[in-house]
Simulated assay, not measured.
Amino acid sequence: MEERAALRQPVPGDRATVAGGLLRIEKIYHEPDVAAYERGCEILARFPDAERVEVPSHWNIPELHGDEGGVGEWNRTKKTVLVLGAKKGLQVRPFYRSCDFIAPSQANGCAMACSYCYVARRKGYANPITAFVNIGGIMGAVERHASKQGMKLEGTQADESLWVYELGTNSDLSVDAAVSDNVRDLVGLFRELPNAKATFATKFVNREMLDYDPRGGTRLRFSLMPPETSKLVDVRTSPVEERIRSINDFVEAGYEVNVNFGPVIVKDGWREDYAGLFSMLDDWLSPAAKAQLAAEVIFLTHTRELHEVNLKWHPKGEELLWRPDLQEFKTSQASGDKVLRYERNAKRALVAEFRETLAERLPYCRVRYAF
C-alpha cells in the first residue's frame, strides 16, 4: 500500500483546537487502515486527546449518518467530530462551469453549517469533515490526467490557456487546510503543472495559506453575499467583511482570486443589498486584485428534504430560503435530484437585474457565468 508508515504515538500536548476555534476535535471516527498512511498518522498525532472510534467505512457511521435525532447537535457535531478514511474512487470527471474537470476530492463534509448547502444531504445529519489520508493517490490521479491532456489549445469558460481542476465540490478547502497538509500538497502540485491550475470556493479565511506559494497555479474563489443575509444563513463561516479584506493579501501571495456570488437569495431589497456589497468590494480591492477579478453568479437552489432538516435546527433561515411563492420544482441536470429554484420566467429577469447592478458598480468584474 502506498504511503505506508509505522504507527506513531500521539505527540504530547493539546492541539485539538484549530481554524481559530472553528474546530475542537473530541472524537475521530476512522477506517481500520488509516494509520498505514503517513497522512493518517500525521492527523491522528495532531489530535492526540481525541477519542478514536474505528468504523468499517467513512460512509458507514450510523450514529452520524442515520440518526435523525442528531440534527439537534448539528453545530456541535461539526465542531467536535472528524472522520478519517481513504478515498476509493479516484476518477477525474469533466465539468463545464467553474472548471474543466473535477478532481478526486481530498475531503468531504464541512465544519461550517451554511443552511442552503447541498453537501449536508450527502451523508445525513450534520456531515462533519471527512479527511482522506491517501493524498498521494489523489495527487497521482490528477497529475496523470493533466499529463494526458497536453497543452490547452482552445480556451473554455473556465480559462483561456490552462486546464482548470475543481478541488472543492464536497468541502471547503480553507478549513480542510487546518486539519491536514492535503491542501498545501495540492497547491504545491499545481504550482508545478505547466498546463493546469486548481480552483476552489471558500467562505473561510485561513491566513496560513498565504505561505503556500501558489505562483498563480491556484484560483481561490471567495463566496460572497450581502453581510446581513450571510449572518443568517452562512452559519460558522468567516464574516463577509473579513473575506473581502483578505482578497488583496491572497492576490499578493500569488493566488488568482475570483468571487462567487452565490447563492443569490431573493428577498425584499435584495438588489440594494448587492449594490452595497459591490461598493464594499470596489472600495477595498487593490488595482492588482481588480485587474484579475472575475465572478460566478449562482441563484439559490433548495430541496424539500433539506428544508425539513433545517426546520429542526435553524428555522429562521428558512424564512429566506423556502419561498414556494417565488420558486418551482425542477429536476437538476447535474444530479438528477428534484430541487426548488426560482420560477423560470421570473429568474431570467432576476439574473438580468443582478448583472445590470454588477456592471454599474464593478464594471471591471468579468462574469464567467450566471444562472
Rank of each mutant, 00 (worst) to 15 (best):
R97T: 11
F354E: 05
P263F: 06
A201M: 11
L189D: 07
R361M: 12
Y165V: 01
K231R: 15
W313C: 06
G150M: 11
P194R: 04
F354C: 06
F190D: 02
V367N: 08
D49P: 00
K347F: 00
R24I: 00
V164E: 04
Q333E: 14
N134Y: 03
V309S: 08
W284E: 14
V205E: 11
A196K: 05
W74C: 04
G66E: 13
D325S: 13
V259N: 00
Q9M: 12
V183D: 03
Q327I: 04
G336C: 06
K27W: 01
L90K: 02
R341E: 13
K312Y: 03
W313Y: 15
N75V: 05
G20F: 07
V183R: 05
V18P: 01
A107F: 05
S57P: 02
P263A: 06
L44G: 08
A146R: 05
R76I: 09
F354S: 06
A36R: 13
P12A: 12
G89L: 12
G136N: 12
L90P: 01
A334D: 10
A5D: 09
C114P: 01
V133M: 03
C41P: 03
S246Y: 10
C99N: 06
S174E: 14
C110Y: 00
P263R: 04
L340E: 10
Y364I: 07
S161H: 10
T218C: 13
E68Y: 10
T77S: 10
P363E: 08
E160A: 13
R221H: 06
R8S: 10
G217A: 01
V179K: 07
T156C: 02
P128W: 01
V55T: 03
P62V: 04
P48N: 08
R52M: 03
A19L: 14
L82V: 01
A120M: 13
T303Q: 08
R46H: 13
V92G: 05
E360K: 14
T357N: 05
N206P: 08
H302K: 07
A5W: 07
G262S: 14
A35R: 14
L7G: 06
A126F: 05
E242L: 07
H314Y: 07
T301L: 10
A178K: 08
C41F: 08
E319Q: 11
R184G: 02
D49L: 15
L64D: 03
N60A: 08
W59V: 04
D181R: 14
A352D: 14
F222Q: 09
E319C: 03
P94K: 12
P214K: 07
S286K: 06
K88G: 04
R323G: 01
T130V: 15
P10K: 05
S279M: 10
T17Y: 01
